[in-house]
Design a protein around this nucleic acid. Sequence first.
DNA 1: TTGAAACGGAACGTACCCGTATCGGATCTA
DNA 2: TAGATCCGATACGGGTACGTTCCGTTTCAA
Lengths: 211, 211
Amino acid sequence: MPDQVVSQVSSERASHEARAPGRPRSLEADRSILSAALDRFIEDGYQGMSIEHVAAQAGVGKATIYRRWPSKEALITDAVGSFSEELTAPNTGSVREDLLGLVRQIGELASSSPSGRCFARMAGEMGSNPELAKVYKEKVIGHRRAIVGEIISRGIARGELREELDIELVIDMLVGPVLYRALIKREQPAKTGRVAATLIDTLMMGIATRA
Amino acid sequence: MPDQVVSQVSSERASHEARAPGRPRSLEADRSILSAALDRFIEDGYQGMSIEHVAAQAGVGKATIYRRWPSKEALITDAVGSFSEELTAPNTGSVREDLLGLVRQIGELASSSPSGRCFARMAGEMGSNPELAKVYKEKVIGHRRAIVGEIISRGIARGELREELDIELVIDMLVGPVLYRALIKREQPAKTGRVAATLIDTLMMGIATRA
DNA sequence: TTGAAACGGAACGTACCCGTATCGGATCTA
DNA sequence: TAGATCCGATACGGGTACGTTCCGTTTCAA
């Protein structure tokens, strides 16, 4: 997030419209900078991208960026952690239907959206940038895995899935194949078809009760 | 591969020791350049790496690199496609044991070896560099998938696995979770333990005969 | 021994980028 | 209206990188 200077308020009226003098910062600039930064990160990678390209693509002066973030690293860290969560957990009452809807969503996102391409970039970057990896795993990956995990836990609670499952492993077995396929293929609609259903059905044989 | 100038031989003795005059190129330099290029690619990414760093790390002059490859792109393409295949297909007679051995191998490679870290980098790079993606998929991914696919086919032929399986999907379900976990975690030994066995056993329930 | 081509090292011109500074103008509060 | 801060644009110094060119040296075949 951009530097919020609101912390320095007059000591008396702490929480009431502590507004700085002068022209306020443009929220539009905030948005366009973060969006452009994410786009350049996806396209050129961490080291390959440049603040000058980000500024040009955002239609913004370089100073406007450095007024908000002290360095390239800080900007990218914010840009990467700024996904307005796109994944919505289905709740149909049936684990199979929930998982199927989820897998189709993930397949869609992974193969085409910025969030999917960002994941691909992060895969390579995390090995060289532990700081960035930490933020991304906590703010993005963690949240997504929680959504999938919740559906699985719900299935266990309803007796549809076996009780002794390793939930983390089941998440990997569900999400892994979809992401792996999205990473190395560039096709779009295949996963939306019957393949997703076959994936779920095959997995269900291994995790459902009455095996 | 480095430019092989051997194609211009005297028209008469075509295939007999057509050796160029002067000092021959150092095979040691070939090796150290490709190795350093791969290492820099893994560490800094495609755009982030530099020929000058590669030369320095390889202990070689820049001219020695440009004598072999015309550009950065050509060098990286060769470096990425130059894996002396590390994956060996087990053949124990039991599909379960074969797959388990394979998964443990893949987990080991993916989490620590250059080939695993290269895959992570390529995941991000393939979206921006179709040419590089094509080479990598054909020369590296294709070969690895063939090894896994062969084990599955063998299992079907022996009647251990169901006949109507979508082999490509089964490969994804086997390899995807392992790579996904290796990408977002940095732990090493967990996969070598009981988790790999649980993964295989869960998957086997979905693909084995007598379901 | 001679000639050819490779070697590592260094320099070159061009281009790009980082982070900072400065400009005239725009937009706020008081 | 006066003062403060933002805006996009432009320029700067210092650094890095690409791909080329030149060194003096080394390693081959003839």
